[in-house]
């Protein structure tokens, strides 16, 4: 038994060290420096809650950043997830096109966000982009030059479109869960005269509650990570029209060089994420613990 104990420690140590180095150390730095005045130029003196007060004072830019992020989280937790669920319901119980559609729907989810951003820069290009080209053909208005990412009126919607419709992961997860419903339940429902819609509404969806909750958590958390696609398409502009919290952190830390203020936002971002997860778990009445 003595030998075993030694091996347990040896097997655990690399992962724990890696975790400690990347996560624990940075969490420690994140929290402690958020109460100081650390910038790229130095500092690091304790200033109490000054950064947090700065962040949430009425005139702060952070409010509009937060608003953008909240809207994106809400849209992604609802529209995006429901789209994925509907696709899963339609594709359920292998039809001839199921695997083809599933593969295609996953494509935007598995390529790098930077590349997806590039695709959108191209198709929304005012001069030669697919969207404007098509509209010129349909409307006959050759001068049509909508600049989707730069026009304050369309920037937010355009950025939203780079992720809102692409719920391939949601669809795949829901479909995987649906295979656990025994066929006998469907057969019984059909014998009782239930229509496909009734079966979906009253049998399948209630059984999918947990996985829908899970995918909602994934979708919401994803909205707290999107830096790449925003940096590539709009850089958060015009103004702060398409800035989310990651973009704001990036700008504060690496462009304004105000490390402490960035880290105060980081602390807030983590707390925001935790609250979102707890809320979603509550809404979907997900009871099992995080270890499933």
């Amino acid at each position: 038994m003595k030998v075993k104990k030694r091996w347990i420690i040896i097997f655990l140590t690399p992962a724990v060290l890696l975790f400690a180095f990347v996560y624990l150390t940075s969490l420690y730095i994140l929290v402690t420096t958020s109460f100081t005045d650390l910038t790229a130029g130095g500092g690091g003196n304790f200033v109490g809650l000054k950064n947090y007060i700065e962040l949430f004072k009425p005139a702060s830019e952070f409010w509009s950043v937060l608003k953008n992020n909240v809207i994106w989280v809400l849209l992604q937790s609802t529209v995006h997830v429901y789209l994925g669920v509907i696709v899963a319901l339609i594709l359920a119980r292998n039809k001839w096109y199921t695997s083809l559609v599933r593969t295609i729907y996953m494509l935007p989810n598995i390529i790098s966000n930077a590349a997806l951003g590039m695709l959108f820069i191209f198709i929304l290009n005012p001069k030669f982009g697919l969207i404007n080209n098509t509209w010129r053909l349909i409307s006959g208005n050759d001068a049509y030059m909508q600049n989707w990412f730069m026009d304050p009126k369309t920037a937010f919607g355009s950025v939203t479109m780079t992720w809102l419709p692409y719920a391939g992961i949601t669809a795949i997860l829901v479909m995987a869960e649906m295979t656990s419903i025994p066929d006998s339940i469907y057969e019984a429902a059909i014998i009782d005269g239930a229509s496909q819609l009734q079966i979906n509404m009253f049998i399948v969806l209630p059984l999918m509650r947990n996985i829908i909750g899970t995918t909602t958590i994934l979708a919401a958390s994803n909205m707290l990570q999107k830096l790449d696609i925003i940096l590539l398409t709009t850089s958060g502009g015009p103004g702060t029209r398409t800035t989310n919290m990651p973009m704001s952190i990036y700008r504060t830390a690496l462009i304004d060089n105000n490390y402490s203020l960035a880290n105060a936002q980081g602390v807030f971002l983590i707390l925001f994420g935790l609250v979102a997860v707890l809320l979603i778990r509550k809404i979907y009445r997900m009871n099992e613990n995080i270890l499933g």
């Binding site: 992962a15 975790f19 983590i270 994420g273 270890l291």
Partner: peptide, 24 residues
């Protein structure tokens, strides 16, 4: 405890750690 700790990463948006990791 270790299992829960190691899975904590799932709840931490990477963007929050930009500056700290840069520093480390």
């Amino acid at each position: 405890f270790l299992t829960v700790m190691l899975s904590m990463g799932l709840f931490i948006p990477g963007a929050a750690l930009l500056q700290p990791l840069f520093q480390i």
